[in-house]
Simulated assay, not measured.
Amino acid sequence: MTEITIRRMTGADLAPVMAIERATFPADAWTESMMRGELADQPRTRHYVVALLDGAVVAYGGLAAAGDQADVQTIAVLAEHRRLGIGRKIMDELLAEAVRRGAESVFLEVRADNESAQAMYDDFGFERIGTRVSYYDDGTDAIVMTRKTDG
């Protein structure tokens, strides 16, 4: 595998990012308008990154941060590039940004049926603190998780 590069997401990345979004979250994908809104708040309250493999966008992730709290908004990796550590690289960057912004805690929601993502978040020290019943558009619950930052 070629080295993965993580860089800040720009509007020029929207086409591949939206393709990954629709492929990864078919039941409840964000719209392009929603993603543009997230990018419009960058860098004020948002930090979005893409992962490049051989120059192509294969993953992305985003963080919202305000005050002493940050929220992982999303992480998505193309199916054929999963289990290669790309999601972990993105999470490392999002957590580092949370520290840079002075966040003391980071929160996220993860689908109750996404065991591989839950395992990654466990590895990063996130703890389950609750459930949002029928949170996703298809009725799947979300598990709410949090961790303190290392900052």
Rank of each mutant, 00 (worst) to 15 (best):
R147P: 07
T5V: 13
Y135L: 12
R22T: 15
A79L: 13
M35P: 09
E93V: 11
L39A: 04
V110C: 06
L108A: 10
V77M: 07
E115T: 15
M91Y: 00
L63F: 01
V133S: 11
E3W: 02
I75R: 06
S134M: 07
Q69C: 13
D141R: 08
A40F: 00
D150I: 11
T45C: 13
S105M: 14
V110E: 01
A66M: 14
E21P: 07
E109L: 01
T140C: 12
T131L: 14
D113G: 09
H81G: 03
G151H: 08
P26N: 05
D28H: 14
D71R: 10
A112L: 03
G125F: 02
D68I: 04
E93T: 14
K89N: 11
R83I: 09
A15S: 14
A59D: 08
A64L: 12
D13Y: 07
M35K: 05
A112C: 04
F25P: 07
E115F: 13
A27M: 13
T10V: 09
T146Q: 15
L39M: 03
D68P: 00
D71L: 12
E93C: 08
R100L: 12
I143M: 12
R83P: 02
T131Y: 08
R132N: 02
E32I: 11
K148F: 10
G130I: 01
G125P: 03
D92Y: 08
A23M: 10
R88V: 11
G61I: 02
R7D: 02
H47A: 13
S134F: 01
A56T: 07
F124G: 03
E32K: 09
D138R: 10
Q42S: 10
G139M: 07
R7L: 01
R82E: 11
E104S: 14
D137Y: 08
G102R: 01
L63H: 01
D150A: 15
Q118H: 10
W30K: 02
F126T: 10
T146W: 14
A23N: 12
V110F: 04
Y48A: 04
V99A: 11
A19R: 13
M35W: 11
V58G: 06
L84E: 15
M18F: 10
A98M: 09
D123P: 00
V106Q: 01
T149Y: 08
M34S: 15
E104P: 00
D13N: 09
D68C: 04
V58D: 04
A19P: 05
V106K: 00
L63Y: 01
A112S: 13
K148E: 12
A119E: 13
H47E: 07
A98D: 05
T131W: 02
E21N: 04
E109K: 00
G11R: 13
V58I: 14
S105P: 00
V144K: 00
I6K: 02
I143A: 08
G139C: 09
Q73K: 11
L14Q: 06
M34Q: 15
I143C: 10
M145N: 04
L63T: 03
R132T: 03
